[in-house]
Design a protein around this nucleic acid. Structure first.
Lengths: 339, 339
DNA sequence: CGCATGCGGGAAATCGCTTTCTCGTCCTGT
DNA sequence: ACAGGACGAGAAAGCGATTTCCCGCATGCG
């Protein structure tokens, strides 16, 4: 910067003004400075800016891991959004461990991030109290509670599931199961509740034997599906808490000589890329990562503007994407064969 | 920091010394300062450090995207390595576009990264010449060339493929195909060459009709496999340039009523998590992400120490992981039925 | 008892940038 | 023709941390 100033025969103050398109500088001078900047290949150093202004221009993003394609997608969209707003992203992983999160929050505070998007809903509040004391905006996931400076974005699965069940009812299904999440996890409980509400909204009785935990994983879905086949033989369709468990369910059905969708319909949740790559392409409830990423950043930026304001609770919905893993219920199918 | 100093009744210089375990400070004082730091929940601000020392403590990582599980894994391991060395990571995506890379290199230089790991081998040199002028270490992928301050880490697939082919030969296969990469891409050409060398090393003739591009994607693998079935009907096994195309190949075989591994053997490359989740679990050539991430960081740190030193060319190998997508060749199988 | 040595610790400059305050010059209006 | 305003641009302070240089006090030795 000093070099540029020296060569242009102006002061570094002017360089700074040129870089910020300040109207206080003569257009001719600005031109000259600009071309010298290009010639020298000068790249401004954000460290200085950050130190002076107290604004690092960095937002933190904390996700459990990256092997779940949902998070991988989210990271990509969040990064893009952040960059489009002229900021940068700092990424960290919790590996589902509270001590990891403690450490990565600390690293982020050291770097002076201006807000954190925390996408792990299963972590206690103790770990991030430090942050609150440090007064930096936080946006959580599926916590359903907000405080000053802390907003929450939660997935409201009920309307989407209601639509999914209506879709199944339209295909003749009456006995519908749910392959849920993992034990007492917040997200798991929420989705199971949504399923119950969605069944009620469709005036369908709930088959308790057909509600089984699936761990959000492929294997979990496999074993959960096997249990449903045994415990609730009348069941002809399942909704799943996420796509991975739905894929496991399809695999289990295939092992047990039940073809999808002819004998059994399966609906996933998330709409990961794999959905269109498997055979049959999977019907699912899409949870838009781009939409969520945008909401996270918008919320963080608003909280940054006014850290005093009470945080908001925001809901995002699901969109039913009908593909080939759902079709007429077996009885219905027989009926149409007769007709 | 000033607060801590004031309360401890010392100067900020002492605080700095305590934070760095400098021997120039009385242990008693150090203790006192430490406890005040804890009480105040003081977190040092790396921006100041970075500005003063000229060392940002950040390494940049540029990957094409995150939907490929290979990159997702790599990012995770690289982050962990970087953090274990007390540094931070800055992540960016190229989306396979040269202009994107230009911009993210610029953002990284602005943040003062101390080196960049660039995992996109298909980008021209023009985009990163700026970096060289700015004298920051760079470690590339599969470029097979180095310069002062620029190292390269490349996958040498030949020994691994030689082992894979030996494995197939042991199972009675003689007609082995290769589902390669994408057009003229560096990595694609390299892997196809490795396949040819590995076949030669095993003294097996090359079936030109059984070498087909597969785009590194599931669909690409599907169509490539179909072409091989038509063009080279004697073929009983294929190696693939990566796991995704191998999965596509298996799907194609299934559509054409060829069961894997009974009628046809398939070997992937990468060993992504999906390998053990599909049915049959896939035999593959593992490319260790953790190992690579470690090598990248080590190289970056060495180049940082001595930017004048000529960069190095490093090779990483593959490890054959035998699972269930390979078994005796059909003819062999018949033979053993007879026997 | 005085001086030298050594060690703990403070003052201050500095990193790159922003921004306020101030100044000098030129233009314009009366 | 002169005063005042407008505009372009510089000087300097300061963000948080590091580090050199230097000082003061205590101790040891002559």
């Amino acid at each position: 910067m000093r070099d540029v100033a020296r060569i242009a025969g102006v002061s570094i103050a002017t360089i700074s003004r040129v870089l910020h398109d300040s109207p206080l500088v003569d257009p001719t001078t600005a031109q000259r400075v600009q071309s010298i900047i290009r010639d020298l290949n000068y790249i401004p150093n954000t460290t200085g800016t950050a130190l002076k202004s107290g604004k690092s221009g960095i937002f933190g993003l904390i996700v459990p891991e990256l092997s779940n394609p949902f998070f991988a997608d989210f990271v990509k969209h969040f990064e893009r959004e952040v960059v489009e707003h002229g900021q940068d992203m700092m990424l960290a992983f919790t590996d589902h461990s509270p001590v990891q999160i403690q450490q990565c929050v600390r690293r982020m505070l050291m770097r002076g991030v201006e807000g954190i998007a925390l996408l792990d809903s299963e972590i206690g509040t103790r770990s991030y109290e430090t942050m609150l004391r440090n007064r930096i905006p936080l946006v959580t996931l599926n916590r359903l509670q907000s405080e000053p400076g802390v907003s929450d974005i939660a997935v409201d699965a009920t309307p989407g599931m209601t639509a999914a069940i209506a879709h199944l009812i339209g295909l003749g299904h009456r006995h519908i199961g749910f392959l849920g999440g993992k034990g007492e996890e917040r997200i798991s409980v929420a989705r199971t509740n949504s399923f119950r509400e969605a069944m009620a909204a469709n005036k369908l009785p709930i088959l308790e034997q057909a509600i089984v935990n699936a761990e959000f994983q492929l294997e979990g879905g496999y074993y959960a599906m096997e249990r449903v086949l045994v415990q609730a033989p009348s069941c002809t369709a399942v909704l799943c808490a996420n796509d991975m468990s739905a894929l496991g369910a399809i695999r289990a059905l295939r092992s047990h000589r039940r073809s999808v969708p002819e004998d059994f319909s399966v609906i996933g949740l998330d709409d990961i890329a794999l959905c269109t790559l498997v055979e049959p392409a999977m019907t699912t409830l899409r949870l838009s990562r781009q939409d969520m990423a945008r909401k996270y950043l918008r919320e963080l930026m608003q909280l940054r503007e006014s850290p005093h304001k009470p945080g908001r609770k925001i809901m995002v919905g699901l969109e039913l994407i009908v593909r080939d893993s759902t079709s007429k219920a077996p009885s219905q199918r027989r009926k149409s064969f007769r007709g």
